[in-house]
Design a protein around this nucleic acid. Structure first.
Length: 639
RNA sequence: GGGCUCGUAGCUCAGCUUGGAUAGAGCAACAGCCUUCUAAAAACCAAGAAGAGAGCUGAAGGUCGUGGGUUCAAAUCCCACCGAGCCCGCCA
């Protein structure tokens, strides 16, 4: 609990301990935790309700829940903001002092500058990896889902006070780039469009050649040359991959996605990290060289030696995983194990770093590098995190499980428990999967999507504010992004998504632009109220002279929603699920809309009524802005 | 063969980890509806604009895949089954 001081949590805590006190007096045995777990928001009676009597009744056997509830409610004192306690159908229902609770919630929400780096989150470092796209094609909508998930999760950790490193893994030694390199050499290198798009389209052509002209052997020879540092081919490969990543990052920036550090697979090999990792694994007997059979000449992890495997790994056909092939090259899993030893600080940071390219948000983007200039940065360390979160497609669950197993086999179970796989479902088209090789992504790139959304957003921007061309463009961009981000993050990560233009460009109902619209409405409302009215409202809240009961259901529902913000953010952190935030943003917007439609703010009859509603509007606007920010959506003032 | 994920309103999805009272949103479909202005003797009709700014309200819509179990209580936990998808490589 990073912020036990927030009013909602304090309320639950004080009710729990009061209940526990009463239960003890009655001779029941129940812990505060148990009591606290029995408390939930009530839909029927009161604002909060406890179901503890049911548990006690079945435990003791001789009383009915309703009787116990009655006994409890007669003894419970009104603590916190509780002003009435009723036993109803076995539940103990707590009715709040709405005025007191509302004032506390508003006060809490308006104190926008709270420090979060307290408690367990303080100084904890987390490395979040996303989206790690092969550097030979543009981001398509599947990669976008990855990047948006990673960005939102990074924002959440950052908000909660963690030190967050946003990391991107560039696989510049894989087959895909090698194939692209062959195309670059043999099919020409005169890009006539954005480099990643051009390269991605050429890659489709390369794959045709592989199937039809049998150039696979040629590519293998090329790959062997390109994998050796310093060769002409390796330099060409680096140039190709670098240009592609730069183009991909333009896309990232257009979506407001940034990184701190970029790690190239070739550096993991060249820097010796892989070698050290293998040494360590061999030394501890985790890895052995197979002398016969299927894996003769390979270095493997032999699962048979590890005893009981986790269920997810019992599906194996073979009881081993190859880390180094018989030709001496390492598999992806081997490099990933080495990299995670780096991430968790089991191996030193011996990388050299250079700045890769400027980012529009002003944050320096570092990259592992073998260049001379990188020497200057060699003192810089990025490794050694408490948590490593990998945003990777669910289809890679198996290698991710092997990765964790390697740490367990090393006798470092505690390290394996610090690695989290945020496994998300694939994005598919109605017509089937998105394939880089087949080119089915063409027309479904992240760039295409943003362009379409922007077209739609531009056509909807109101003329009333007389925005200039560039202002309008900025708003259109924000609204377009909002539609896409909200729609992509709305769905639970584990679910597969069939892409649809209609849904991705949704501007109505429960959508990003709708939430932005509510933020803008609130902003305008506050502006129209004028600074004096706001200042005096706030002053009255602070000195406690605000005379308003907050009795309206719509108003109080909004306040309750505002009050649970911290819990929502922590839940999103605990479960690595940004969709919880999306849900919350949608509810806030909906409740705010219901609030201001039903209750006049500026035209409120009494001064205190107007002041209170202005404060509610302000708190709602702040919280909507915050949750949008966590999702990576701009909270616009006008649209 | 083994493992994982998903199945909730016509559609898209929350809720399930931590069981709690009447299972929630959005879209679609359905039924209604306010004020001001363009506006002119008045009323009515049509169109458009504005409303604190992309109008608002209501009702309807459900075997929570199926069956069993645990429990005072199951969408939620357990088991089995059905359906959809994915993974199990010296690819990444």
């Amino acid at each position: 609990m990073e912020n036990p001081e927030n009013p909602y949590r304090l309320l639950v805590l004080s009710i729990s301990s009061e209940l526990e006190r009463v239960l003890k007096g009655l001779g029941f045995d129940a812990s505060v935790e148990e009591v606290s777990r029995s408390i939930s928001p009530s839909k029927i009676g009161g604002d909060l309700s406890s179901s503890i009597s049911f548990r006690l009744a079945s435990a003791s056997g001789d009383s009915k829940p309703d009787e116990i509830a009655k006994r409890i409610s007669s003894l419970v004192r009104p603590v916190g903001f509780v002003n009435r306690i009723e036993a109803e159908k076995g539940f103990v229902n707590f009715y709040l002092d709405r005025k007191g609770f509302s004032a506390a919630v508003l006060l809490d929400a308006l104190q926008d500058n709270r420090a979060h780096a307290t408690g367990s989150a303080a100084a904890k470092k987390v490395i979040i990896e996303y989206p790690s796209v092969n550097p030979n094609k543009p981001w398509h909508i599947g990669h976008l889902r990855n990047a948006l998930l990673g960005n939102a999760i990074a924002n959440v950790f950052s908000y909660l006070g963690y030190s967050v490193l946003r990391e991107d893994y560039i696989d510049d030694l894989g087959i895909q780039v090698m194939e692209s390199l062959w195309g670059y050499i043999n099919l020409g290198n005169n890009p006539d469009k954005k480099f990643d798009h051009w390269l991605g389209e050429q890659y489709v052509e390369v794959n045709k050649r592989i199937e039809e002209a049998g150039v696979a052997g040629e590519i293998k020879t090329l790959a062997q040359a390109a994998e050796k540092p310093g060769t002409k081919e390796s330099l060409m490969l680096l140039e190709l991959a670098k240009k592609c990543v730069e183009a991909q990052y333009e896309t990232a920036f257009s979506y407001g996605i940034y990184h701190d550090i970029m790690v190239w697979e070739s550096d993991i090999v060249a820097n010796g990290l892989l070698g050290k990792a293998m040494e360590l694994l061999e030394e501890k007997g985790v890895v052995e060289t197979s002398s016969s059979g299927k894996y003769a000449g390979c270095k493997i992890i032999n699962f048979e030696k590890l005893g009981e495997l986790p269920k997810s790994l019992q599906s194996l056909k073979e009881n081993a995983k190859v880390l180094v092939r018989s030709d001496g090259t390492a598999t992806y899993v081997a490099k990933d194990i080495a990299f995670h030893m780096w991430k968790l600080g089991l191996l030193d940071d011996t990388f050299k770093y250079a700045e890769f390219m400027p980012q529009p948000n002003g944050v320096a983007l570092y990259s592992t590098s073998r260049s001379k200039e990188a020497e200057a940065f060699s003192a810089r360390k990025f490794n050694g995190a408490d948590l490593a979160i990998n945003v990777i497609d669910v289809r890679q669950s198996y290698p991710q499980a092997v990765l964790r197993l390697a740490f367990e086999a090393l006798g470092r179970k505690e390290l394996s428990e610090r690695i989290f796989h945020l496994a998300y479902g694939e994005v598919e088209l109605q017509s089937g999967v998105l394939s880089g090789r087949k080119g089915t992504w063409i027309g479904y790139s992240a760039d295409d999507l943003l362009q379409e959304a922007k077209k739609k957003a531009s056509s909807l921007i109101t003329e009333r504010f007389g925005l200039t061309g560039s202002e309008k463009d900025a708003v259109a961009n924000s609204v377009a992004r909002a539609a896409i981000i909200f729609e992509f993050l709305k769905v639970s990560p584990e679910k597969k998504v069939i892409f649809s233009w209609d849904r991705a460009l949704n501007f109505e109902g429960n959508s990003g632009p709708y939430v932005q619209y509510m933020h803008a409405r609130a902003s305008r409302l506050l502006e129209d109220a004028g600074p004096e009215a706001l200042a005096s409202a706030e002053a009255r809240l602070y000195d406690g002279s605000l005379d308003y009961q907050f009795n309206n259901e719509k108003e109080f529902s909004l306040i309750k929603q505002i009050s649970i913000f911290e819990d929502i953010v922590e839940k999103a952190r605990n479960e690595l699920r940004p969709n919880i935030l999306v849900e919350h943003a949608g509810s806030l917007a909906l409740l705010f809309s219901a609030f201001y439609e039903a209750l006049p703010v500026l035209k409120a009859e009494k001064e205190d009524e107007k002041a209170a509603r202005l404060l509610v509007t302000r708190a709602a606007r702040l919280r909507i802005g915050k949750v949008l920010g966590l999702l990576g959506i701009d909270a616009v003032e006008k649209m």
